[in-house]
């Protein structure tokens, strides 16, 4: 074990491709942890999964036309978000059903487009990630997305907080909550595309929700949750990368399994869950002698 770690570190010093992989893994870990926190707090895990699958046709078309993947993916990610919202609000169909229909259709379309583009190796990489084959331009793009994510969250932190916590209230004071929603969907799409390189389309959702859910178990404050979640994302990515390099595992599954392990450990030992340690106060009804009344309306 120790041996393989030293070997990994020596290899890091020697090989450019491994350095690129590490850099990308760290950046993707940070951005998916941050955006993922908002996704899980808004109860949008399924939406995160949907958007990540729905970008596939965009990726395929970008390949065919030789344009930047981010551009193609963004168009389809946002299109999917709008369609999901449209179907849900203009029919009696519930949102989860609407998500299921739209994302599977987009995914299917993407699959066919990719096979038309005749690049089977690429398809495999897109689906499962190939962090060891990151190009310099990929790193640049990932850095730009990371900067965008950090800017977006710092500028609109209070809007993201209030719409995640109490959307109705935000509407009543006049905030355009729909704009915040679609802006978040756009940023989510960009993060998804960056995460394609490390974990692949199928497992992107794990990078979004697992580190965020892990950090949620450890803190009661949103700002701390964002940092923690980014940290858990980085640790998962880097450890996964090490496993991937050492045992020749696919990078995506390796990273995702590490994230899941961290979650499992937190689930057992974190104070919020209280399996091992009980939290100091649960409810204060007792202190106050609260009467319970059922709401008759």
């Amino acid at each position: 074990m120790l041996n393989s770690i030293t070997e990994f570190i020596t290899a890091l010093g020697k090989y450019d491709f491994l350095q690129s992989a590490l850099l990308t893994a760290v950046m993707v870990g940070v951005m998916s942890g941050i955006i993922g926190s908002f996704i899980i707090l808004r109860g949008m895990s399924l939406m995160g999964d949907a958007i990540s699958h729905a970008v596939l046709p965009g990726v395929a078309i970008a390949y065919m036309l030789g344009i930047n993947i981010l551009l193609g993916a963004s168009v389809f990610g946002i299109l999917a978000a709008i369609l999901i919202g449209f179907v849900a609000s203009h029919s009696k169909i519930k949102t989860d059903t609407s998500i299921g229909i739209v994302f599977s259709a987009f995914y299917a379309l993407g699959f066919i487009l990719i096979s038309m583009a005749e690049s089977t190796t690429n398809l495999h990489h897109i689906l499962f990630g190939n962090i060891l084959a990151v190009s310099d331009s990929d790193i640049m793009t990932t850095a730009v997305v990371l900067a965008l994510v950090i800017l977006f969250v710092s500028i609109f932190y209070k809007e993201l907080l209030v719409t995640s916590f109490d959307e109705t209230y935000a509407k009543t004071y006049g905030l355009k909550t729909q704009v915040i929603h679609y802006a978040l969907m756009l940023v989510l799409t960009l993060v998804t595309v960056s995460a394609l390189q490390t974990v692949g389309i199928i497992l992107v959702v794990a990078m979004l929700i697992t580190p965020a859910a892990t950090s949620f178990l450890w803190t009661d404050r949103l700002s701390i949750m964002l940092y923690l979640s980014a940290g858990v994302g980085v640790v998962s990515s880097v450890t996964g990368l090490y496993l991937s390099y050492t045992f020749n595992w696919a990078s995506g599954p390796a990273i995702v399994l590490v994230a899941a392990m961290l979650f499992a450990v937190s689930f057992v030992v974190s104070p919020k869950q209280g399996f091992l340690f009980k939290k100091r106060t649960r409810k204060t009804e007792v202190e106050e002698g609260l009467k319970y009344e059922t709401n008759i309306d």
Binding site: L41, L161, S164, F165, T168, T172, Y173, D220, R221, L222
Partner: peptide, 29 residues
């Protein structure tokens, strides 16, 4: 100029936010 206090049951009480920060959201508008 409008403040609305909705029925409490519609909120996520597990949200990572403390009492003071909830009150501060009142200044956002």
């Amino acid at each position: 100029k409008v403040a609305y206090v909705e029925q409490r049951k519609e909120l996520d009480l597990n949200f990572p936010i403390n009492v003071l920060d909830v009150v501060i959201t009142g200044t956002y508008g």
